[in-house]
Amino acid sequence: MVMLGKDLLGIHDLTPDQISLVLDTALSMKEVSAREIKKVPTLRGKTVINLFYEPSTRTRTSFELAGKRLSADVINISAGSSSVVKGETLEDTGRNLQAMNPDLIVLRHASAGAPQLLAKMLPSSIINAGDGAHEHPTQALLDAFTIRERKQTLQGLTVVIAGDITHSRVARSNIDLLLKMGATVRVCGPRTMVPLYIEKMGVTFVPRLEEAIEGADVIMMLRIQMERQRGSLFPSIREYSRFFGLNREKLKHARDDVLIMHPGPVNRGVEISPELLDSPYTIILDQVTNGVAIRMALMYLLIGK
């Protein structure tokens, strides 16, 4: 029987069967969120701590709702309002939280490997809600769920991931998951934002967006972080948008039934032109809806039994 381990630290640790298990479980969880009474007693008496060292609205809210819809007690801790500002180490914070017997800690942290550090130390389950530029497994799972909803399968699809690949945990988790599930992945972006050895991950690097999306089934646009311009990774927002932003003209190269996705938050008019954002190709809000279902599924699979 397929099961998950104690923690969900990254897509790297999952088999295709485990990925399918999460996606299938999320189907029934999605149904819960569509009810008038959006609550089931599955995790009654369980405690979930959202420990967020980086600002987040979407992901944190999504985890909080997921826990609450399963009747868990959910507590949110953000770095700005905790002992972190007093200089407590991650290890000590973890030990102190553990002393209060939580069942699950959801961690977002700026350092790659921080969830591994916590998972090794604590008996409670850990979900990685994003660690540095390393992994963001729940995002990749909700993206896969959203694609599967529309295309039935991931097998054989061509998916383009475009933008700042180097600094993107979303890209890394998605590449890993999509390849494991039989999709073909192309990455696109200026060389300054794409790691030198990216093709060793099993993807194709196509620097120009028009060529990258040729015949694509799915295009994932990544958020551009404006502050990277100061580091000269790209010359100006205007130039970036012109060559690496998606608009109706460039989209002609993709398939007619192409899906446009984005992990959010979107810079309107930078990565994606406003007209495309509001077009039927774009399924960004589906991603957000499905995020709750995926996180409910993970909580259930990790601590629900």
Binding site: A112, G132, A133, H134, H167, P195, Y197, M201
Partner: peptide
Amino acid sequence: NEGIPSTYLGMRG
């Protein structure tokens, strides 16, 4: 090191 492992781990090389 900036290499294949750093690409997977997302750590600055």
